[in-house]
């Protein structure tokens, strides 16, 4: 009897140990990066933009490094705040580099690419929640940045931006060339917006929900207040790029 028992258990083990696994996907958010301006779709450089004092800025070469993207859940409602207050279990709020809510791989966007063409930044698998905003970090590209141009093309490594172009004064006149490069870092913390431009939180609250969002560089707004020929223009331009970022929920 014991030998029969042992033999049967042996078969059970053999079958079970042959190994198998399966996955039920959770929530995910695919993040992309693009540059575009509403109403037009340019195929590449050069790009003519409105500059300060009715000047026209023409970009001939331009790269921007997006160092990280982190998403944030919507603030808890009063009801959820009450539940959290009453709960004896603490909720950690710390964030770490490369967390489920943060993509820390730098990507360099080359404005020679067509408008709207997306670079895949990666897929977040955040805790289930509804997300209202994202923080986009512009910082100096390292040698491992995705899309980093070759040093023979432009010394982008160590720089947050590298912008070349010319300015044509209002009313005409000779165009003045400029080259702007900067290693300063700025963050843009912006809400997710829908196609209409209004706030559009992303609900990732049920299993197998897969959404996407794209970080948009609104290059048409970069020079609204930045004179590329002025002193400190490069650092001011990084700030302007951060302040004009959009994150579109799709």
């Amino acid at each position: 009897m014991a030998r029969t028992f042992g033999a049967r258990w042996g078969w059970v083990l053999l079958v079970a140990a042959s190994g198998c696994n399966s996955e039920d996907p959770g929530v995910s958010l695919d993040m992309g990066l693009a540059h575009q301006q509403p109403g037009t779709s340019l195929g590449g450089l050069p790009r003519a933009l409105a500059g300060p004092n009715d000047s026209v800025v023409t970009l001939t070469r331009a790269w921007v490094n997006v160092g990280a993207v982190e998403i944030f859940a919507c603030p808890p409602t009063a009801f959820r705040r009450t539940l959290r207050f009453l709960s004896p279990i603490g909720v950690a709020e710390a964030h770490t580099p490369g967390s489920p809510t943060k993509i820390g791989v730098p990507h360099v966007d080359d404005l020679a690419r067509p408008d709207g063409e997306m670079i895949d930044l990666g897929t977040l698998k955040p805790p289930a929640d509804t997300y209202c905003q994202a923080k986009v970090s512009l910082d100096a590209a390292d040698d491992d940045a995705v899309g980093l141009p070759a040093p023979s093309v432009v010394p982008m490594s160590g720089n947050t931006i590298w912008i070349e172009g010319s300015v044509t004064p209002a009313g005409g006149g000779p165009a003045l060339d400029f080259t702007l490069s900067s290693a300063v870092e700025f963050d843009g913390q912006v809400p997710f917006v829908g196609a209409s431009g209004s706030a559009s939180p992303i609900a990732l609250t049920s299993a197998e929900t897969a959404r996407s969002a794209r970080v948009v560089l609104r290059y048409d707004r970069w020079f609204a207040t930045v004179d590329p020929l002025a002193a400190g223009a490069a650092d001011a331009l990084v700030s302007a790029i951060a302040q004009t970022l959009e994150v579109h929920a799709e």
Partner: peptide
């Protein structure tokens, strides 16, 4: 022989037998 189910905060579930 282990039969494991892992649940994560992103609501994903993974089952493994090995």
């Amino acid at each position: 022989v282990l039969f494991r189910t892992m649940n994560q905060f992103d609501l994903s579930t993974t089952h493994a037998t090995n």
